[in-house]
C-alpha cells in the first residue's frame, strides 16, 4: 500500500512537471557554505526513496533567505545558539550541576552527536531525540523537572547542541533496539492522509515537492535544519512544532509533541534526509 502510494507520488511529480511547467520552480543549484564549511544540500537518496536526490529546504528558499543562513553572523538563529551555550554552562537544580559539569566543552563532547539522533533509548525502550535526552539529563542527573514543550530554554539548548554537528551528515542507526519498527510506523504515518484536506506528509513534500502551495515553494520537508529560525515567527521553531503545525493545517487533530506517533515520524523523516548536513539553525520562511 505504502509502496503503491509512493509510486503514485513519484508519477505525479513527473505528470505535474509536464502538465504545469509554469508551476514547477526548480530548487536552486547553489552551494551553501557556512563559516568555510561546505554543507551537503543535495545528495543521493537513501535506498527505497522514490526520487534520486534528497534536497535541503535551503535550495527551495528565495535568495534573501538563503543569504541569511549562509552568514553565521546575520543568521538570527545564532542568537539562540549563544543563549543555549549560556544554559549549557549554568548550574541548575538540586544536584548542583550544569550540562558542562558532566559533558565539559560541547564543541568537543557534542561534536557530531546530534547527526545520529533520534537514537535508541534502552531505558525507555523507545527512540530518544535531543529534547528528550536533555529532559532525561535534567530529571536523572540534575534533579530538575523536564522542560515544558517548546519552552524558550528547551529550544535554545536543543539548537546549541544540534549546532555542534553543523555540516555533519545525518545518519541514523536503524539496527539499534526497535528502531526499525519505529521507522516502519513513521513511514505509515508519513503516507497517512489526515484531516478535512485529506493530506499526508507525502502529498506536499513528496508528490508535489517543487510545486507551490499558494505562495510557498514546497520543499522535501527535511528535518536536517531543525530547530530552524522561521521568518514568520521570528523565532526558533522545533521539529515537533512543525509536525503539529503541518498536521493542524490539514484540518486534523494533531498529536502531542514527543508522542509515539510523532517520535516515529521523527525517526522516519530524519532518515529520509540521510546524507544531508545538519544545518541547525537553518533559516526558513
Amino acid at each position: 500500500m505504502n509502496r503503491k502510494l509512493a509510486a503514485i507520488g513519484a508519477g505525479a511529480v513527473l505528470a505535474c512537471a509536464l502538465a504545469l511547467p509554469a508551476a514547477l520552480a526548480e530548487p536552486v543549484e547553489e552551494t551553501l557554505s557556512i563559516d568555510g564549511v561546505e554543507m551537503t544540500t543535495r545528495t543521493k537518496a537513501a535506498e527505497g526513496l522514490p526520487f534520486d536526490d534528497v534536497l535541503s529546504g535551503w535550495l527551495f528558499r528565495e535568495a534573501e533567505t538563503r543569504a541569511l543562513e549562509a552568514d553565521s553572523f546575520e543568521n538570527p538563529g545564532m542568537l539562540y545558539v549563544e543563549r543555549g551555550e549560556e544554559i549549557w554552562n549554568t548550574v541548575e537544580g538540586a544536584a548542583g550541576k550544569s550540562c558542562a559539569s558532566c559533558h565539559d566543552d560541547a564543541a568537543e563532547s557534542m561534536a557530531g552527536v546530534a547527526a545520529h539522533y533520534p537514537t535508541w533509548d534502552a531505558d525507555s525502550e523507545r527512540p530518544i531525540n535531543i529534547e528528550l535526552q536533555i529532559d532525561k539529563c535534567r530529571v536523572e542527573q540534575m534533579g530538575l523537572e523536564p522542560y515544558k514543550f517548546d519552552a524558550g530554554e528547551q529550544k535554545a539548548l536543543t539548537t546549541f547542541i544540534k549546532h555542534q554537528s553543523l555540516g555533519e551528515p545525518v545518519e541514523l542507526d536503524l539496527g539499534e533496539g526497535q528502531m526499525q519498527s519505529w521507522w516502519e510506523h513513521g513511514k505509515e504515518r508519513y503516507y497517512l492522509r489526515t484531516g478535512q484536506l485529506n493530506l499526508a506528509c507525502a502529498s506536499c513534500h513528496e508528490a508535489n515537492s517543487g510545486q507551490h502551495i499558494r505562495a510557498d515553494h514546497l520543499s522535501q520537508g527535511q528535518a536536517n535544519g531543525f530547530p530552524t529560525y522561521r521568518l514568520k515567527q521570528a523565532n526558533m521553531v522545533s521539529l515537533h512544532n512543525r509536525f503539529r503545525g503541518c498536521i493542524r493545517d490539514t484540518r486534523a487533530e494533531f498529536p502531542d509533541a514527543f508522542s509515539d506517533e510523532l517520535m516515529a515520524l521523527e525517526v522516519y523523516v530524519t532518515w529520509r534526509g540521510t546524507g544531508l548536513s545538519v544545518e541547525t539553525p537553518a533559516v526558513r520562511q
Binding site: 505535474c16 504545469l20 508551476a23 493530506l199 502529498s203 506536499c204 508535489n208 510545486q211 502551495i213
Partner: peptide, 10 residues
C-alpha cells in the same frame, strides 16, 4: 491534488 493545493498560484 493540484486543486487541493492550489498548486502554482502565487
Amino acid at each position: 491534488q493540484a486543486l487541493g493545493l492550489t498548486a502554482g498560484a502565487a
